[in-house]
Amino acid sequence: MGLSLGRAPRRATLLLVVLGLLWGLWEGWRWVGMHFALTWPFTVDDITMPHLHKIVQALFQPAQVNGPWLLDILWHASLFTAKESAVGLALGAVIGFAIAVVVSQSRILERGFIPYVVASQTIPLLAIAPMVVVGLGSKGITDWVSVCVLAAYLTFFPVTINTLRGLQSADPRAVELMHSYAAGRWRILWKLRVPAAMPFLFSAFRIAAPLSIVGAIISEPSASIQGGLGGAIVNFNQYYSIEPQELWATNLIAALLGIAFFLAIVGAERLVVRRAPEHVA
């Protein structure tokens, strides 16, 4: 742990260097594209690639005359979408975990059930969104809850698949050891298989966390929610050909939200998973 003090500044430097490189790449490509009038793979102009500083500037300007800063709007939209995504992620994690635990109890159940779990992910979210929104709406449930359900629909899948692998990853001799203690199925599950699955569970959460945000953003328009990032994206889409930097700025904020979720998972993993250092990614 003593090393982390020296590591923090080094990491910050690395982050700045990478950000600088990305900025240089963007602006460099823009300059080359405009200078040589490239049309492949796309025409470079102020619409397709606005200056990065313009995108950042847009955050600190009102989106509408006399309105609040764009950053202010997007901050509130992010909080709203973050709430939907967090609830959706939690819901998806619980459901995904529960399915894996149930299915892991029998080979037949696994063979019979998992194909449907896989099939569920081939149905586009947009196709089931109206059903969920109308269905839950008719029961008088608040619209943002249906967004959570749709986000959960995306996130449960990696959780189920990874948990299942994790539950089966327990050392066979450790299982024998549990048998020697006369441990039953549930004891083996809770004392051995679930703890052994934790690293697998967290790699699923790493995938599921940004996915929950994508799910929420895509589902918001279906639920006619204006206040989230999805609403903001739909709104700024309409002005893209005039003021592209506002949509770009929204995308930037959505990406930052995704990174924040990812880092929250990494942090939780550090707290929960006790593993040999080489196992900690």
Partner: peptide
């Protein structure tokens, strides 16, 4: 005897739980 936990077992590998 196994159900009554009459024996303890030690394998070639320690088979310890990493998380404990």
């Amino acid at each position: 005897a196994r159900r009554d936990r009459d024996y303890g077992i030690v394998f070639q590998d320690p088979v310890l739980y990493d998380w404990r």
